[in-house]
Simulated scan of single mutants.
Amino acid sequence: MPAEFYRRQILGLLIMAVVFGSVSQNSRLDFWITDFWYQASTHSFPWKDNYWLELINHKAMKYMIIISAICALFWGVYQRNIQLVVTMLLMGLGVLAVGILKAVSIHSCPWSLTEYGGSAAYIPLLTSLPAGANSGPGSCFPGGHASSGFSLMALFFLLYPLRIKAAWLCWLAGLLLGMAMGFGQVMRGAHFLSHNLWSGWWVWLTQVLSYWLISHCIAYYGRHSQRVLINGSA
């Protein structure tokens, strides 16, 4: 990848960080969307335990992506297709990054917040827990489930730069799938919209930086091996 590609990506990610940070800090959009799926009379989210939403969106889609990625990874190893192997690794690294951030997060899911019948306090992004407040179970930021869909954005690196249009279409498909899977969780009260926006941001940042690092390591190894061969044959 040319250096200009990485400069554009970092600039775009910085701009999106400002936009998503504003959404998270303001919180009105998050609550406005989540309120549509909350039933105040019963203090519950009617779609929380919906059978089809749980089966198709929360389980089937995630497992299909995981199984497909694992199969593609082994196929890439068998075929010695380094580009396919790297792409599948990028998918896993993006999900892993979100999973780690989510595990250490103090932010609780909407269904645990006092605003929606729970006992946990709402904590705006980049702020600490107020004295005496209950953070609840936490571990709800960014959106872990959406990261499975967003991971498909890594297919961009499988096709770029030989098929640029197809590469960007794959990136867009991963973006839309991640948002769709994430919105299913919004309907259940499991996440705010901003949780999913940040999930996509972290996945793409991880994939871009990881691809840069891996490609540079491969290039260095290739140059080093070539020098060894030249020196050995001299």
Results as ranks from 00 to 15, higher is better:
184 G>V: 06
121 A>W: 11
197 L>F: 12
117 G>F: 07
234 A>C: 12
29 L>A: 08
214 I>H: 01
215 S>L: 07
199 S>E: 02
121 A>I: 00
222 G>H: 12
212 W>E: 03
128 S>V: 08
28 R>P: 01
9 Q>E: 04
206 T>N: 10
189 G>R: 11
35 D>R: 06
207 Q>Y: 01
51 Y>A: 09
79 Q>I: 02
104 V>K: 10
44 S>K: 12
94 G>N: 02
77 V>D: 10
41 S>Y: 02
40 A>F: 11
177 L>D: 05
166 A>F: 05
166 A>G: 01
7 R>Q: 12
129 L>C: 06
5 F>G: 00
187 M>R: 14
206 T>M: 12
10 I>A: 11
41 S>F: 10
61 M>N: 09
113 L>V: 00
115 E>C: 02
152 L>D: 09
59 K>D: 03
67 I>R: 12
13 L>T: 02
100 I>N: 08
4 E>Y: 06
57 N>E: 05
18 V>L: 14
116 Y>P: 15
93 L>T: 09
84 L>C: 13
115 E>N: 15
229 L>N: 13
205 L>Q: 03
183 F>Y: 09
65 I>W: 04
181 M>G: 07
126 L>I: 05
180 A>S: 10
30 D>I: 13
30 D>T: 07
146 A>C: 02
69 A>I: 07
109 C>Q: 14
152 L>H: 08
80 R>M: 05
109 C>A: 13
17 A>Q: 07
98 V>S: 05
17 A>F: 14
162 L>A: 11
105 S>N: 08
133 A>N: 04
169 L>W: 12
139 S>A: 12
223 R>H: 06
124 P>A: 00
50 N>E: 06
6 Y>G: 06
89 L>F: 10
196 N>L: 10
132 G>N: 06
179 M>K: 12
95 V>M: 14
172 L>R: 14
11 L>M: 11
9 Q>T: 05
229 L>R: 15
11 L>Q: 14
94 G>S: 01
86 V>N: 08
90 L>W: 12
195 H>V: 03
129 L>P: 10
48 K>C: 00
205 L>W: 04
159 L>S: 07
180 A>H: 12
160 Y>P: 11
20 F>A: 00
174 G>M: 11
201 W>L: 15
41 S>G: 11
45 F>R: 14
127 T>G: 00
4 E>C: 01
172 L>W: 15
189 G>Q: 09
6 Y>A: 01
158 L>Y: 15
227 R>E: 05
59 K>S: 04
147 S>C: 09
233 S>A: 09
126 L>R: 04
222 G>L: 04
182 G>V: 03
89 L>N: 05
64 M>I: 11
118 G>D: 13
32 W>S: 14
88 M>K: 03
234 A>Q: 10
106 I>E: 09
66 I>G: 03
79 Q>K: 15
169 L>Y: 13
144 G>C: 09
178 G>I: 01
202 W>L: 11
159 L>P: 08
110 P>Y: 06
42 T>G: 08
120 A>C: 11
168 W>H: 11
137 P>V: 00
40 A>M: 10
127 T>C: 03
217 C>N: 02
112 S>H: 15
218 I>Y: 01
95 V>Q: 09
77 V>I: 15
160 Y>H: 13
101 L>A: 05
112 S>E: 15
113 L>F: 02
95 V>Y: 04
224 H>I: 00
136 G>C: 13
35 D>W: 04
182 G>P: 13
137 P>C: 04
138 G>A: 13
74 F>I: 06
12 G>Q: 09
215 S>P: 09
